[in-house]
Write a protein that binds this DNA or RNA. Structure first.
Length: 574
RNA sequence: UGGCCCUUCGUCUAAUGGCAAGACCCCGGCCUUUGGAGCCGGUAAUCCAGGUUCGAAUCCUGGAGGGCCAACCA
């Protein structure tokens, strides 16, 4: 097995079927040991987590086997491709940590080559110009249960076809007047092979070619040739292109590309619970205002995920965990949450913030006293240095949910007469509950502290089981906190829709809850936007890269912490 | 005249004719100044029926179930 690169030896025993194929190809010398992949997005939207799987696969495989991966824009449709999408995709791929070096390609640079091959196909009698209307072509193509029939233009002579093709290219005809079709078999059981369209007339401005071109190639004609032009060895695409493999090989044969040549292999696209990854539908979410934009933190786009505070490492970890197979599958969102927490746990410094405010007065603490606590930024089990000064004073804010007047047995937090640890500070006891006489609402807790418990357990050995977070009232900074949750309220937004409904009916009305003001400890004041934290006991947050500024803080919740108390509490109620 | 692909714990993925394994979820326990993290343990699967074989998740046949294909999208 010495043919397998040294950097591969550390890989685990088992390989997915794509890597198995690559290793076979390397071992047998099919491409002289060469591995060349490509990531070929159509620049008609923003990249999303599903693309990340393909990016990790194509760039990852190239890295692992000492090969190359091209970035190639499949910009063959002038009506949808834009420079904005081209630019955002490069930002996103780089952010994920991949590099195409000098291998940036555009299918639109190959239009001349596609056209020259088209003339060749016409001369060889393997393609013809069809002047039928779109509806007629559809009619004559048949259905999955009925064969198609040849149309009246199918037997034009090569000379006639060549003349028409040249005039198509010269712009003599309007959109739809003619198309170039492969001459294969209208009765083929594979619909893709029923004389597929190769070139169509489209008088549209192309974002790169302007108005200099008007015969644009179809996917089935272009994609295999793009791969061949770039001398790709392994062309990976998603499962729904399985039927297209036959035309992929037909076109390569027809223009005379000899093996060993690019081969298409299909793998399962990523599907994630509680979201959608269809570009068409993501565009609707943006255009119809269901979200604030492509980078809305609820979006499964790379831009949205990034703004939510997810790290590229977490995305790549998810892709590793998910693996590659040829079976359709949906990934449990919990797996993504795990990957995010697993990365952020050792990366994000801890801070304290309070979302739902309840005032606590330490009655036996002097009014003018302030202690500055040197609080470590990471727990013992995270091997990182760092601390910040935390002010402690007589008046504090704690989380309203950390107090219960009539608590259940396992509630280890504040209740009348009970003791609790203030994180990094004293143990306090709740002596008195101040309520609004009218409404009964709890307005304030009056507590006393044990002055011996700063950095120490109670001297008399009594156990204090709960620890809660807090901020010092005079020192805390106001902030807007955006609590993001899953975009849809059901795992598969497409399933079980009632008559007349579409996926938007399943949008989660609580996918964004804004807390304003929340209060955050002062140590975050001077951090730049885009800084990630764990607000202890609440979750991982990032200061919003767009809207947060010193003096006007905005935090996005990336993901909540695992909450085993919620399970216990829910069970108690059930 | 239909064709092609797929089917292993709840979920995702291994096992490539030889002990059905790992991860996430879930459930216990330990630990804990985060009801976090970590550690230990547990529940849990080869779609069905035949066949080949000493031996089948794996090969063969037939079912069942799921997916894709009838854009001048990709």
């Amino acid at each position: 097995m010495s043919e397998i690169p040294a950097n591969d030896r550390a890989r685990p025993e088992s390989r997915d079927f794509l890597r198995t194929k690559i290793e076979t190809d390397i071992r047998t010398g099919k491409y002289g040991g060469r591995v060349a992949t490509r990531f070929p997005p159509e620049p008609n939207g923003y990249l999303h987590i599903g693309h990340a799987k393909s990016i990790c696969l194509n760039f990852g495989v190239a890295e692992e086997y000492g090969g190359t991966c091209n970035l190639r824009y499949d910009d063959t449709n002038p009506d949808t491709a834009t420079q904005e999408f081209v630019d955002s995709m490069q930002t996103d791929i780089r952010w994920l940590g991949f590099d195409w070096e000098d291998r940036l390609y555009f299918a639109s640079d190959y239009f001349e080559q596609f056209y020259d091959w088209a003339e060749q196909l016409v001369r060889d009698g393997r393609a013809y110009v069809d002047s039928s209307s779109e509806a007629e072509i559809r009619e004559l193509r048949g259905t999955v249960n009925e064969p198609g029939r040849p149309g009246p233009y199918r037997d034009r002579t090569p000379d006639e076809n060549l003349d028409l093709l040249r005039r198509m290219k010269a712009g003599e005809f309007p959109n739809g007047a003619h198309v170039l079709r492969a001459k294969i078999d209208l009765a083929d059981p594979n619909m893709v092979m029923r004389d597929p369209l190769l070139l169509r007339i489209r008088h549209s401005s192309h974002y790169r070619r302007g108005d200099d071109w008007c015969v644009y190639p179809m996917y089935d004609y272009a994609h295999c040739l793009e791969d061949a032009i770039e001398d790709i060895t392994h062309s990976f695409c998603t499962l729904e292109f399985r039927n297209n493999r036959e035309i992929y090989d037909w076109v390569l044969d027809a223009v005379g590309i000899e093996p060993p040549r690019t081969e298409q292999t299909e793998f399962a696209r990523l599907e994630l619970d509680y979201t959608i990854l269809s570009k068409r539908k993501l565009i609707r979410l943006v255009n119809e205002g269901h979200v604030a934009g492509w980078d809305d933190p609820r979006m499964p786009t790379i831009a949205g995920i990034r703004r939510r505070g997810v790290t590229p490492e977490a995305v790549r970890a998810l892709c590793d965990m998910v693996g590659v197979a040829d079976v359709n599958s949906r990934i449990d969102i919990a797996k993504f949450d795990y990957a995010i927490r697993d990365d952020l746990n050792w990366r994000a410094p801890r801070r304290l913030a309070v979302l739902d405010l309840l005032k606590v007065v330490i009655t036996d603490y002097p009014e003018d006293r302030v202690e500055w606590i040197d609080a470590p930024s990471f727990p013992r089990d995270v091997d990182k240095e760092g601390s910040r000064p935390m002010p402690f004073s007589r008046e504090l804010w704690v989380e309203r949910s950390d107090f219960m007047e009539d608590p259940p047995r396992k509630f280890h937090r504040l209740a009348p007469g009970s003791e609790v640890r203030l994180r990094h500070a004293y143990v306090i006891r709740c002596d008195e509950v101040v309520k609004d006489p009218e409404t009964g609402e709890v307005l304030e807790l009056r507590c006393s502290h044990d002055p011996e418990t700063m950095g120490a357990n109670p001297a008399d050995g009594r156990k204090v089981r709960g620890t809660i977070h807090w901020v010092s009232a005079p020192h805390a900074l106001p902030a807007e906190v955006r609590l993001y949750d899953r975009l849809f309220s059901v795992p598969d937004p497409e399933a079980d829709l009632e008559e007349g409904q579409d996926f938007t009916a399943n949008l989660n009305p609580e996918s964004l809850v804004i807390v304003n003001p929340a209060l955050v400890e002062p140590a975050v004041a001077d951090d730049p936007p885009g800084t990630r934290y764990q607000f202890e006991r609440l979750g991982y947050f990032i200061s919003d890269p767009v809207d947060s500024a010193p003096g006007s803080l905005v935090f996005n919740r990336t993901v909540a912490l695992r909450d085993s108390w919620a399970k216990i509490a829910a069970r108690g109620r059930g």
